[in-house]
Amino acid sequence: MRFCNLILWDMKFQARYGFYLLYGFLTLLYAALLFSFPEAWKEKAAAILIFSDPAAMGLFFMGAVVLLEKSQRVTSFFAVSPLSVIEYIWSKTLALNIIALVVAAVLAVSVNSRSISLVLLGTFLSGILFTLLGIIIAAKIKSLNQFILATVPIEIITFVPAVLHLFGATPEFMRIYPANVCMDMICGREFSVVGLFFTAALLVIFFYAAYRSVSKMWQCEGGEKL
């Protein structure tokens, strides 16, 4: 019950700060853009749009979410409440991914994607990975500019190989690279099972790192170690 309330609170928070409005507008814009593309381009263009925006929204917004919570002293209350770090991380991850999944579903339907369930699975997996990375960085930074700068290398090492992989410009062994596995899924094509195993392992590692980062952030609230 506490966990459900937390997700609900996070969703209300997102609605209040215009996330739903923003993504409603962006979804319409992306769908119109895809509609104007030639048939041969549509599926790949949709995959790039889904992977770089709704799936990666955690990486873009998590810095602002955590910094706002810090400046409003919300994290101080979390630290002394019965809420666990695991619940906090899952709530943030799932609440953001709900928007990502809805946007991805609309875009996949608009281009008649081969397998919508696979697109959603790929969006969900990449969404979790990006959000966890966002949480790990956000827990350590002090300003938005720091966060934006810290996410640039992550964007380069995830987006560039994934886009190159989409166009078949990467060697065969790169099929197991987690970003490429997610891109294969979002594109609705066959993915590497070994790669999926690696992605799951990476997810566990990122979750552990996020757990450590958030625990440390909560312990250091107010400049004192609790």
Binding site: F61, L68, L144
Partner: peptide, 12 residues
């Protein structure tokens, strides 16, 4: 009015 809204407006 805050960082989070700022990021949403930035995107737009």
């Amino acid at each position: 009015s805050n960082k989070l809204e700022g990021m949403a407006v930035t995107k737009l």
